[in-house]
């Protein structure tokens, strides 16, 4: 473990110095909240909850996709291309601690993004919450791990940082708009809602929204299955295909 925490704290600082990543993880969700919140308000209309209340789990799903899919994939691919991974690999650090520190930083950022979102929404809109805090945290953990595993697979199969960027954007934007993360599900056409099922992020949105509403886990076995399978398969595939250079 020697050096692990130092590496993690350095990576944390470096994340905050990367304006794009920090903006999309920490600031952009707040902008969405304020813009759509001031347009639609937060009148109780769905199961006693308002638009803003329901946007919290959806925007949390967006943050998870931003860090897990975009930041993780691009930062690992870039670190590999620049020889940074190779250089760290040549130190006494164990391979697992190098990769864990990367994931830990992004996980902390995801959690920070979610907490900022909740605090801001609480202060400005006075949000309502019908769920169980621990259930939501567990759902958040599962969703994050699942998306980080996906990010690792994409980082493993991309040859350069640039190709990683293209691949990630091609997945991220459709997912963002068709899963119910950025645009509420109930305004999407029926067909999009049906086909949106093939997008992993749809399952994150559904699970987190359900848990936010206080629905039991048993109502979301499909989402849980999809996310667990994605996590396990992702870990196996990336363990087999991961390259340090």
């Amino acid at each position: 473990m020697r050096g692990f925490w130092k590496l993690t704290s350095v990576e944390f600082k470096l994340f905050l110095r990367e304006p794009m990543a920090a903006f999309f993880t920490l600031v952009f969700p707040l902008m969405m909240l304020f813009i759509f919140g001031s347009v639609f308000g937060n009148k109780a209309q769905y199961f006693g909850l308002g638009t803003v209340d329901l946007s919290i789990p959806a925007y949390t799903a967006m943050i998870i996709a931003t860090t897990g899919l975009v930041s993780l994939t691009i930062s690992i691919a870039a670190a590999r291309e620049l020889g940074i991974l190779r250089r760290l690999h040549a130190t006494p650090l164990t391979p697992i601690s190098i990769l864990t520190s990367q994931v830990l930083v992004l996980f902390l950022m995801t959690a920070l993004g979610m907490v900022l979102l909740i605090i801001a929404a609480k202060i400005t809109f006075g949000i309502r919450f019908n769920g169980n805090v621990f259930s939501v945290i567990l759902g958040f953990l599962l969703s994050s791990c699942s998306f980080f595993a996906l990010g690792f697979v994409l980082a493993s199969i991309s040859r350069t940082a640039r190709s990683a960027q293209v691949m990630v954007m091609a997945l991220y934007y459709p997912m963002l708009f068709l899963s119910g993360a950025a645009i509420p599900k109930w305004v999407l056409p029926e067909a999009v809602r049906t086909y949106g099922q093939i997008l992993p992020l749809t399952h994150v949105v559904n699970l987190l929204t359900g848990l936010w509403l206080g629905e039991p886990w048993s109502a979301h076995l499909k989402e849980v299955t999809v996310l667990v399978v994605m996590m396990v398969v992702g870990l196996i595939v990336s363990a087999k295909t991961f390259r340090w250079e």
């Binding site: 350095v10 470096l14 110095r17 990367e18 670190a79 620049l82 020889g83 940074i84 190779r86 250089r87």
Partner: peptide
Amino acid sequence: ESQLQPRL
């Protein structure tokens, strides 16, 4: 040809 993080 090994680099470090650009902002480090």
